[in-house]
Simulated scan of single mutants.
Amino acid sequence: MSGWFVGSSMGFVTGGAGYNAAWVFGPLGAFIGWLVSSKMEQGSNAVKNNDPAEHDGYGNDQEAVGPSAELGDRGIKFFQEVLWSVVVLLATVWNFHIDLLEKVGALPTFVRQPLLFPGMCIAVSLVFPPFFIVYFLAWVAASTFNICEETNYRATIK
């Protein structure tokens, strides 16, 4: 549902025709929602009723042991996996940016003068402000993969 909502205010043009982005983001959002709900259902099937031994009768919970602790660990692991996926996706966006710079022949200049990266970000952000947030997050994500001059500031995703 959120894919339709977000996509309804966007669009893309290709091959001389324009399309509403809701046709892309709607099914994509539905698929992601289905994946998340199926993961949650698998987790809820493993959880039994609360064990009275976990409570001391005074409202103070004892150390979490049993199915509820497993659910908490599974939730944290799921969150870490989603966060890692977002980092990899943003690092891929950074690599796409590096590929574009390479195609136009500007990458050697950017490698010699790394301050051109934030300069370009600021220049593009003056015209399209949301670019700053995406560019900054992509840079942070790519930095986790040790971008440096030796790799031409390309993230080596493992």
Results as ranks from 00 to 15, higher is better:
S85T: 07
A106M: 13
A17L: 14
G15K: 03
F96N: 11
F136Y: 12
A69L: 15
L115A: 12
A123M: 07
A69C: 02
N152H: 08
V13D: 09
E70T: 07
F5P: 00
Q113F: 10
I122C: 01
N45C: 03
G72A: 15
A91L: 02
V87N: 14
D99T: 09
H55P: 00
F25R: 02
G57A: 13
E149R: 09
C148M: 03
T151I: 03
V93P: 00
A138E: 03
Y58E: 08
F78C: 01
I76P: 00
V13S: 15
N49G: 11
V87F: 12
V86P: 00
W23A: 15
M120I: 04
L35W: 04
V134E: 02
W34Q: 09
F145G: 03
V104Q: 11
G59E: 11
G18C: 03
G15T: 08
S143W: 01
L89Y: 12
D99S: 13
L89A: 15
R74C: 00
L90N: 09
W84M: 12
L107C: 07
A141Q: 03
G119W: 05
A69F: 13
L101V: 01
F25V: 02
N45M: 08
L137E: 04
V111G: 04
T151G: 01
E41H: 06
T14N: 06
W94L: 02
S9K: 11
P52M: 14
K48R: 08
M10G: 02
V87S: 08
A30R: 02
A106K: 13
T109Y: 10
G119T: 08
W23P: 00
S44N: 05
P67E: 13
T156P: 00
